[in-house]
């Protein structure tokens, strides 16, 4: 564990609390992509199956359980409690275009051709693109509530902080590098660049998040 990863994880944690706060206070999940949230549940379940056979630390296990539980809870809120505020007609990204390639990539690139290792790879690849339905929705509506942009920013910061974490680990752990995680992580962080540009130049200057027409 190093500071970059800890801050990254805390940022991830914060993003979930921001999302829950947004849904509870506005009593609405407007602007949130159900598809992205469903992909996150898939990611967490596929990756954290290792709770059953790999113990890293109490911190690690508690975080994993929290990420699974909170992501399922968010789906519940969207699908049941605040269902009328969820508009599937603008959440139109075709997730089969993400799932298919991720399945294929995980079958080719994995550290061992076993069920758990392929699922681990799959979760890494899927996480890297899981935000796309959300960004697509943003692009489509052209605007977002400020709180929703804070949620996305916290998620982006989490991913961005994993990059210095890997550099730090490479230096301090004698050249250790995880090619699958690093490649997917760079792609994932890259997807946030456009968003961050608008976030920093508009939202943090007190303006509304609006994309040019």
């Amino acid at each position: 564990m190093n500071l970059f990863r800890l801050l990254g994880d805390l940022s991830h944690l914060a993003s979930i609390f921001i999302l829950l706060h947004k849904i509870q206070t506005t009593r609405s999940c407007r602007g949130i992509s159900f598809k992205t949230q469903a992909l996150y549940v898939t990611v967490f379940v596929a990756r954290y199956l290792d709770l059953f056979y790999r113990y890293v630390s109490l911190y690690n296990s508690v975080m994993k359980l929290f990420f699974i539980a909170s992501s399922v809870y968010i789906l519940y809120l969207m699908k049941y409690k605040y269902r009328p505020t969820n508009d599937p007609s603008i959440d139109t990204f075709r997730i089969e275009y993400l799932l298919g390639p991720c399945v294929l990539l995980s079958l080719i690139f994995n550290y061992k051709f076993s069920v758990t290792e392929v699922l681990w790879s799959f979760s890494i690849f899927l996480e890297s693109v899981a935000i796309l339905p959300q960004l697509f929705m943003l692009q489509r509506t052209g605007e977002a509530e400020t709180i929703t942009t804070h949620y996305l920013a916290a998620l982006g910061v989490y991913r961005a902080l994993y990059i210095p974490n890997w550099i730090y680990r490479y230096i301090t752990e004698d050249g250790v590098v995880d090619p699958i995680a690093v490649t997917a992580g760079l792609v994932q962080t890259g997807l946030y660049i456009d968003f961050f540009y608008v976030y920093f130049t508009k939202v943090l200057q007190g303006q509304k998040f609006e994309l040019p027409a």
Binding site: K64, W120, R169, V176, V177, D178, A181
Partner: peptide, 10 residues
């Protein structure tokens, strides 16, 4: 040690 150093990450 399991393959892939990121296995101990979240």
């Amino acid at each position: 040690q399991s393959p892939g150093s990121a296995h101990d990450e979240l």
